[in-house]
């Protein structure tokens, strides 16, 4: 990075660290922070969408759909995350490739499963074996988003389902008395009011999601915890120009500060969101707001 970095052994502490902290590996570490933030920014809305659909399905009047929604919620909530990430992602990847295989390689005569091996034709590979590494990374990232969305979607569905039931029945009856259809009641009365009941549960999920990102490495995505472990590990001379002992404590301390800061920001944002959602609601919070504002 800097011109004086060519001989790190001869440097004083400040310069040594300025070189050390700008090596290529450290750049990957910094990029990983953006990766994690991007993952959260994409996953959270998608998971919320899954949750909303799941909750809608679970309270549907159409029986099979209701079963499907309930099964989704209880099945996914009951399976440990790590099982989901090890088994489900590989299965999902193989399902995609199997489907492409059926379409793209109709002439294939060998079995797809040969013992432990999963063999599809080259054209059905996802991404293609010849694709550059960044496409593999992006694909892995996409799989991660889908898996996170399914897992956290199930929890969100349960929270939203509860939120929908918490809306006072009187509100819905009033809507029906005004002649609104089921659909109108749902979208105009139920949904706007349920958020205030769902938000505490959802904010909990968000906090858990923030800290679940180390699971990413199971999918081959190098997240911040992976890099902290890798960079903090003992480095012996000969394999690096910057040998050092076991510094994982300092790297993890840095992560701790990052996560605490991130959690604090989330809390502030969620609190102000709560204030806005409470406005005009028939809850204790809404009542307090109404009394505080002079009319």
């Amino acid at each position: 990075m800097f011109s004086f970095c060519s001989d790190p052994d001869a440097l004083d502490t400040v310069r040594w660290f300025s070189c050390y902290l700008t090596t290529g590996v450290h750049m990957s570490f910094y990029v990983a922070f953006f990766k994690v933030l991007l993952l959260l920014a994409v996953t959270a809305p998608v998971a919320l969408g899954f949750g909303f659909l799941g909750a809608m399905a679970a309270r549907s009047h159409f029986l099979p759909l209701r079963w499907f929604g309930k099964a989704y919620i209880s099945l996914v909530r009951g399976v440990p995350d790590i099982v989901f990430f090890l088994f489900f992602v590989i299965a999902l990847d193989q399902a995609f490739e199997w489907m492409r295989h059926q379409v793209l390689c109709p002439g294939w005569d060998q079995p797809i499963w040969q013992g432990n091996d999963f063999i599809v034709c080259q054209a059905a590979k996802l991404p293609l074996g010849t694709s550059p590494q960044w496409m593999h990374q992006t694909y892995g990232f996409g799989l991660a988003v889908i898996t996170f969305a399914i897992v956290f979607g199930a929890f969100a569905a349960n929270v939203l389902f509860g939120g929908m039931r918490a809306v006072p029945r009187a509100q819905l009856e009033t809507a029906e008395a005004y002649g609104m259809s089921h659909r109108q009641t749902f979208w105009r009365v139920l949904v706007p009011q349920m958020w205030v009941y769902a938000l505490p549960g959802l904010s909990n999920l968000w906090m858990v999601l923030i800290k679940a990102t180390p699971l990413l490495f199971l999918l081959g995505i190098e997240d911040i915890v992976y890099w902290a472990r890798e960079l903090g590990g003992t480095k012996t001379p000969g394999f690096t120009s910057f040998p050092h002992g076991d510094w994982r404590m300092w790297y993890f301390l840095f992560l701790l500060i990052f996560y605490l800061g991130f959690t604090r920001v989330s809390e502030v944002v969620l609190e102000s969101l709560m204030q806005r959602l409470t406005l005009g609601q028939a809850t204790a919070g809404g009542e307090a707001q109404r009394k505080a504002v002079p009319r």
Partner: peptide, 23 residues
Amino acid sequence: AQDTVRMGTEGAYPPYNFINDAG
């Protein structure tokens, strides 16, 4: 048929395989 072969390694076991300063 495939001319690209993907080589999987751990990257944490010097001198066999490790991540160098350039990442």
